[in-house]
């Protein structure tokens, strides 16, 4: 059993929550420009680490809000909880974010192209 600290409701039993898969997967801006292999990276491929993993969760039997969580998949230790749309702030979270193979994919580069311009 996990005790998950919902950013709104506080600590709750994990049966109230819904797991939403890997966090920080960006939809390509110009999907037509990507090869099938590169689009498959975005659509089908998920990271499956043994260790810290950035993932999305929803408190669907409570306030129904989504949030991000850094969880160690080997020990179930919850290392960080942070809002949707933000990047992790802890060192472990930033390391997990940077180490993800997705950062180097054509799909993510496509998604970020034109950002800030």
């Amino acid at each position: 059993m996990l005790l998950i600290d919902c950013p709104w409701c506080g600590p709750r039993d994990d049966e109230e929550f819904h797991y939403g898969g890997e966090a920080h997967i960006l939809r390509p801006r110009d999907a037509a420009a990507l090869s099938d292999e590169a689009f498959a990276d975005y659509l089908f491929m998920q990271q499956n680490p043994k260790g810290p993993h950035l993932e999305r969760w929803s408190h669907n039997h409570g306030c129904r809000r989504w949030f991000n969580m850094l969880r160690n998949t080997a020990t179930n230790e919850i290392l960080e909880i942070y809002p949707m749309g933000e990047k992790p702030k802890t060192e472990a979270g930033q390391a997990a974010y940077a180490a993800n193979w997705r950062r180097e994919t054509a799909a993510e580069k496509n998604a970020l192209s034109g950002e800030g311009s």
């Binding site: 409701c9 709750r12 039993d13 049966e15 109230e16 039997h61 409570g62 306030c63």
Partner: peptide
């Protein structure tokens, strides 16, 4: 509180 009571929401 919004929670599960005996599995019922």
């Amino acid at each position: 509180a919004q929670t599960n009571l005996a599995k019922a929401q």
